[in-house]
Amino acid sequence: MALPPYVGPFDRTWHYVYLVICASVFTFLIAPILVIVPLSFNAEPYFTFTQKMMSLDPDAFSTRWYEDIVNNRQWLHSAKNSIIVAVFATLIATTLGTLAALGLSKPVMPYRSLIMGVLISPMIVPLIISAAGMFFFYSKIGLAQTYVGLILAHAALGTPFVVITVTATLIGFDQSLTRASAGLGASPTTTFFKVIMPLVTPGMISGALFAFITSFDEVVVVFFLAGFEQRTIPRQMWAGIREQISPTILAVATLMVIMTICLMTVVELLRRRNERLRGIRQT
């Protein structure tokens, strides 16, 4: 975005104004997330920077809110719940989603766009409606307030992400590769594991991570479907924000941001690997 030498003073000024605007928007996006990190080390039970913190007094910082999490059975229990539900929901969503994407990417598939529309709908329907529907139906068949019910619900919400990412990997998938494999004597199973899987894996993993995040972050369905026993981390945070708001929440939030950064890195590395494997060059 270097300015060419011939621009006049008006364009030059506008260029800098423009850069300032962009910087402000980026700040608006990222600052709220960064602000909570130092605040979670606040020694006082406040949600703002104290005078001492501003002068970088080491006494103003402490890890007491993190110790709070570790010593609190409720938080640990929620963490365990979140992980159990997210892992199983992700497994279901990834398996079913990948298979469906493979089927959908075949040109012979009938009613392709209609079926795609139905499979993506859990992502589009407002969460409150999904949650309400699931609450009634799952209560009727005895799945409300059970882990199984929660896992099935979260798996349904996670599948669109898997379908979308795996379908995207399969766009431009060279069907003659499978024919070549068959021509060289491989059985369909061998072709699947030796040819298709390696090409699909990056999309599958990033879809799985999306499904994992969706489940890990989901609170509305949990709110309606889970009993006290099944409380997850977001549900616990929700209660914390609504009832007794303490900096422990900020510590949890910071940990979740760190988790997000780790997952993001994985996705980015996978994307690069995928592009390298498929010979796409960045320009």
Binding site: I92, L96, G97, L99, A100, L102, G103, L104, K106, V108, M109, P110, I115, V118, L119, S121, P122, V125, I129, S130, G133, M134, F136, F137, Y138, L152, A153, A155, A156, T159, V163
Partner: peptide
């Protein structure tokens, strides 16, 4: 074969999501 691949998810979404709604 394509229908067979899509069917499990379609039924799953139908039962866990579309029918409840």
């Amino acid at each position: 074969r394509a229908i067979g691949l899509v069917a499990p998810l379609f039924l799953f979404v139908l039962v866990t999501f579309i029918v409840p709604i």
